[in-house]
Design a protein around this nucleic acid. Structure first.
Ligand SMILES: [Mn+2]
Ligand SMILES: [Mn+2]
Ligand SMILES: [Zn+2]
Ligand SMILES: [Zn+2]
Lengths: 124, 124
DNA sequence: ATCCAGTATTGGATAAAGTCCAAGGTCATA
DNA sequence: TATGACCTTGGACTTTATCCAATACTGGAT
């Protein structure tokens, strides 16, 4: 555990946190000015491999890093500002996919992304 | 309607078609050798604006272009080879998100991505 | 059939996100 | 202190996508 890794871990602490690698780097630099982008990418990659952090692709640009890897969850995204919330829908979407729609795949996982407009953007 | 646009439209014809811009360009070049990448990107962007084609982000790399914009559907992705099938699950995932999990958002849409292993990859 | 204004296409430059690498730094152990 | 394993760094490189100025094309008016 180096100072660099500790800083990346600190930046990724919290709820509803879904930062891009670049955002992680900016915030890490505020705490440890000389940390490099390469180290941020390396550390994020290690955390993902360890299962401590999830990669999420809620927009079609940069990957986002999600420290909430403990409890499975899905995402609610504001189409205007990009804010992302963790959500826990009821039901079991896996069970909703009939065999006739599985094309012989062994299906093991499902991701659900809800889209809408957040209260802030709706007010503006 | 120019020859270039016609070729892009032809390339995007079919079922379970989810090509990247680069794949569209390669196939378009096979039919019209001098078509440029810029025109492919322009045309894809127009088709998306018109609602004739959807952008899908099933992997975390290039966007994919989906001509099946007529009937809403979701996707089943092979985690190994990337093959993508259109699927129509039962149930209504939007209804599965309780108000208490909406954070005041006006939720209007939901995307579901199933992940698994396709028969080909399972056999190998 | 020809002209022309508007639109489309092109190649190359640029940008954004991410990966790779060789060089050098750090740290525990001996 | 010397060693070796591992970590960090900056920059080069790759991939994907966008932007732009110059050129080519199109379709309607004459
Ligand atoms: Mn999350
Ligand atoms: Mn599809
Ligand atoms: Zn918003
Ligand atoms: Zn497969």
């Amino acid at each position: 555990m180096t100072a660099q890794r500790r800083v990346v871990a600190e930046v990724l602490d919290g709820e509803h946190v879904h930062l891009t690698a670049d955002e992680v780097h900016s915030r890490a630099v505020a705490k440890l000015p000389e940390i490099s982008r390469a180290t941020v990418y390396n550390t994020l990659g290690e955390l993902v491999s360890l299962g401590e952090v999830l990669e999420v692709a809620t927009d079609k640009r940069a990957k986002r890093y999600d420290p909430n890897a403990h409890r499975p969850h899905h995402h609610l995204v504001c189409a205007q500002c990009g804010e992302i919330k963790d959500v826990h829908p009821g039901g079991n979407p896996l069970a909703d996919l009939p065999d006739s729609e599985r094309f012989g795949f062994k299906v093991s996982d499902v991701e659900v992304t809800y889209r809408g407009v957040c209260p802030n953007c709706a007010a503006a």
